[in-house]
Design a protein around this nucleic acid. Structure first.
Lengths: 360, 360
DNA sequence: AATTGTTATGAAATCGATTGCAATATGTTC
DNA sequence: GAACATATTGCAATCGATTTCATAACAATT
């Protein structure tokens, strides 16, 4: 073992000349000037080395490189952003970051952007216009170069207004929704068609009395509901009937539970249920199990999202997968293409997939 | 309605003098110089108004205020960070942002910091040392003023090394874990004691053959496991026996399921199961239901975290609540106290609470 | 009217990194 | 050895905001 390990040169310098010009302030965070002084060169050369640019003698470069490493130099991002006029930061807006499905999306977006040298900042925007505006102002302040809106909750006038006010000219990617503003690109999940085929699927398996349970009337939920109505209409000739139950509360699990109770009361012969999200379906399942209704023999259930929630249920939930992974990867690539000066597709549609498990 | 709404003054100026000194570059983002020019004052005065400082004539202040508002001015955060030598940013490190329990913690931390004028940046660090170091370098680059480590996965030498290397001097808050470095504060959940009392609880309800299912050997999981062992030891006099099952895979649901199957095979008389996390318990419950074992009559189950997962299960899961909400609020306040120059408690312990539902 | 005190205002330096341009040093060719 | 080309290097301006200090303007006091 070495007795007297070499002390970082610039660190010592930092301690000695503690009140000179250029970055000898408090703390032990070094600036390129500290490094330059230690290497007996100018800050320009240090900068060139850091950024891997040519125009530095190889011997000098190696020396600077070593001092950078020895002293664990990390550039000041704020200074870089300021001079480069580019933050390489994008915002990922989520109404509630405790929503598992949306965080999964954020994860994919973030890792995709990361691979391309961008940082993704996850922001909890909340559900109201005020929180949204506040979040967008924050993102503007940070000079983000793009924003991803996660989920159709953001498809509304308030968002359009806030975007126009705080983030004009910046590319917006919307996962599962559309906004009528310039530079907005979107990935849409064909949930309406998906629910339509769910009805078809159930009808083909002999189900005739189908309930549909939905919660907050987000654009996505309204689309799905339409898909249900149209699906029922298409199956009417086969004697299929349908009813819609709404329960617009925060707790979807309880919402599904109580909606199902109502459905059983009003239509005891119901033999299938489609729920707008898995959590509603989990609640509905509980209501059925509580009444000792045989699932799927007597009543079939289908949820949406193909989330872990459905796999926790027992019997395990059949669910319509809206391909959040693919949607987000595509969304991230739309954004990257735009940032690189290209012209991404305005809107990409994703087919849904019915994942059959034990409740159908 | 007004016919000719006043065009924002500074915006027009921006368009006219598009290549002057000071901030007339591309885009339509205004600088204080733009505002200053529009108001016929100096940038100093604009800055003073923006920051609500005294030393500006009231008439001038009102004029500047109006122009700021009209033009939707938002300050450049990078420039502010640079000159103020303060980012008012903290990092929230999470191994996997798709982990619901940890994101819930992040949510509480973020909103608590938000109330106090700090921004919380959520970073997905991954489970390996390389990802961790990368995350910390990133946070250093952004000059964060504090870091919250979410969960005991970060209680290890790699983290200590990475902190020392990239974030020396910066306060670290660890939720449910401890680190042997300066300026590290922590909130510990007394999970060991909690599991101990779970064993006691089960024994008091006449359970004699208790299985314990655990997954990845994180410090928290090891503690809980010790709590189980000690609990069993304490109940041995009452004829209670216990067995530990480990299943160290990514998919906890499946892990719990298969561990339970093994337990049933090796010890058919098992009459209670404690699982290190709710998701394991959900899997274990499925294995029991599949074998038509009566829960809780024949076998009782207890999980840990009191998460939504447990409420999706049917019967609904009894779970040991480790008070993530309170832990995070306390952690955030430790951080805030430190940042305000105070001396927060080095370590706060949180009592756990057994939330009884239908599996006991 | 002269002096002092107070308020309002702007010029200039600063934060840390990048980069165009000028200056210097080195190498090449005839 | 002179003229020219090329490779290194550093100075200084720049990004946008904040803040100190000096000056100007004005009111109050004797």
């Amino acid at each position: 073992m070495q007795r007297n390990p070499k002390k970082p040169i610039a660190y010592i310098i930092k301690l000695l000349y503690n009140n000179q010009k250029h970055g000898f302030g408090g703390g032990i965070l070094l600036t390129i000037y500290d490094i330059a002084k230690a290497a007996n060169v100018s800050a320009s050369s240090v900068s060139r080395v850091i950024n891997g640019k040519s125009g530095v003698n190889n011997a000098t470069r190696q020396k600077i490189l070593q001092i950078l490493k020895e002293n664990n130099y990390v550039p000041n991002e704020a200074a870089r952003i300021l001079v480069n006029q580019s933050s390489r930061l994008i915002g990922i807006l989520i109404a509630d970051i405790r929503n598992l499905h949306h965080m999964e999306g954020a994860y994919y977006i973030q890792s995709e952007m990361d691979k391309n040298g961008y940082n993704g900042m996850i922001i909890n925007a909340g559900y109201d216009a005020k929180g949204l505006a506040h979040a967008m102002e924050n993102l503007n302040q940070r000079r983000v170069e793009g924003v991803v809106l996660m989920g159709s909750v953001f498809q509304n006038r308030d968002t359009e207004k806030a975007v126009r006010q705080y983030l004009p000219e910046i590319p917006i990617i919307m996962i599962n929704g559309q906004l009528d503003i310039p530079n907005c690109y979107s990935v849409l999940s064909q949930e309406k068609e998906g629910i339509f085929t769910c009805v078809e699927f159930l009808a083909n398996h002999g189900r005739k009395q189908i309930a549909y349970i939905t919660n907050a009337p987000t654009p996505s939920n309204l689309l799905k509901q339409n898909g249900f109505s149209e699906g029922i209409a298409a199956q009417r000739k086969n004697g299929v009937r349908g009813w819609i139950y709404k329960d617009d509360r925060d707790d979807s699990l309880k919402g599904g539970y109580e909606a199902m109770q109502r459905a059983l009361l009003e239509h005891p012969d119901v033999d299938a249920v489609i729920c707008a999200v898995d959590l509603l379906a989990a609640g509905a399942l509980q209501a059925l199990l509580e009444k000792d209704v045989d699932v799927p023999r007597k009543v079939a259930i289908i949820g949406v999202d193909n989330s872990i929630y459905g796999q926790i249920c027992y019997p395990r939930l059949t669910s319509l997968d809206n391909q959040i992974f693919s949607s987000c990867v595509i969304g991230a690539h739309q954004l990257l293409e735009f940032l690189q000066g290209g012209h991404p597709a305005r809107c990409v549609s994703m087919q849904t997939v019915l994942v059959e498990r034990e409740t159908t």
